[in-house]
């Protein structure tokens, strides 16, 4: 199940409140700054710190490379007062 586009606009990491990369095919939201990932369960993002996962260096590199090559969307880009890429078009 996918994530509601409205949620992609507003979600932030519960720890640093910054944007997350949304990997739709893997159903994870990823914070590259803290190397921490959050799952999306049946379309509901599970933003509990104690249920998030720390990601190792090789997995981090894979996700970053994939985000670049597949133009993975970032959350928060349309939040009010937010900034960031205007590329909000879902593929």
């Amino acid at each position: 199940m996918t994530l509601d586009p409205l949620l992609i606009e507003v979600l932030a990491c519960p720890i640093d409140k910054g944007p997350l990369l949304w990997f739709e095919d893997e159903e994870i939201l990823y914070n590259p700054r803290l190397k921490r990932s959050y799952v999306v369960r049946d379309g509901i993002p599970v933003m509990l710190i104690d249920e998030s996962s720390e990601v190792g260096d090789s997995e981090h590199d894979r996700l970053i490379a994939k985000a670049k090559s597949e133009n993975v969307p970032e959350t928060g880009s349309n939040a009010r007062g937010g900034k960031g890429p205007t590329d909000a078009s879902p593929s």
Binding site: L6, P14, P45, V46, M47, G82
Partner: peptide, 19 residues
């Protein structure tokens, strides 16, 4: 359809500032 749900703690709201 203008509603969304997030699993999270009230002490750690997963939204940016001033939204």
């Amino acid at each position: 359809d203008n509603v969304e749900f997030i699993e999270g703690y009230l002490e750690e709201i997963p939204l940016p500032d001033a939204t």
